[in-house]
Design a protein around this nucleic acid. Structure first.
Lengths: 113, 113
DNA sequence: GCACATACTAAGTATTCCTTAGTTCTCGGT
DNA sequence: ACCGAGAACTAAGGAATACTTAGTATGTGC
């Protein structure tokens, strides 16, 4: 399993991908996320290179700037990452519809009652 | 918005809920997640009370024990948390089905093409 | 009351992050 | 080729946070 090794780079990878999708610089991302202008560039770079990991509040701010749910950064499964991203762009009614549909699908185990 | 305040307790809340759903003690959860027996109880308690936050690798281990995707702990939206949990119990084929269905739903903005 | 399991906490040590100050890389203009 | 500007990237130390240890509280059955 690559879970251990991937753990340190998963967040970094998703952060960089989301930033490039928006087409802004590391410094700009940091500033818009509320980081001091003097350290924004260094910090975002450290995050994207996997050198350091931000605390949860910072991740929330980054997610807001990048227009993805916070959970997106922690999705190990690629399909799950996409699903979370899509969910973030839905209205309340469609979110409910999606959830209801998911509940109808057969689960792997724990058949329930 | 309660995003800021919730940030510190969101992980704690979801961790406790998932542990209780499994019906194991704080110490047992910690031990099964690979934490030293001597500090497992204290650490899990600190996590559930929002006193401290574990690093990403530890979160992955906790998720494995608790049978939820890692991203589940970071879902701000309650519906999203449920969706992630359901996704975790699906087989590969059903995951794809769910993702395809999500893609058919109308998105909030950025109508795109 | 006692014994045991579980939950919880304070405090010091250990570890990690944030800030600062800078270097390297890339590219467009001349 | 050279220069300048913006972007990416890095080392190192001070600042902040988590982990370990040791112990206290709470609840339950005997």
């Amino acid at each position: 399993m690559t879970t251990d090794r991937a753990a340190s780079s998963l967040f970094a990878h998703r952060l960089k991908a989301a930033r490039l999708a928006l087409g802004i610089s590391q410094m700009e991302l940091g500033i818009q996320a509320g980081i001091d202008e003097a350290s924004a560039s260094a910090r975002i770079n450290q995050y994207e290179r996997g050198k350091h990991t931000p605390d949860f509040l910072t991740v929330c701010n980054l997610a807001r700037v990048l227009c993805v749910p916070t959970a997106y950064f922690y999705a190990e499964d690629e399909h799950l990452a996409e699903l979370i991203d899509l969910f973030g762009h839905l209205r309340s009614a469609e979110r409910k519809t999606l959830l209801d549909f998911a509940a109808t699908l057969p689960s792997k185990k724990k058949g329930g009652t």
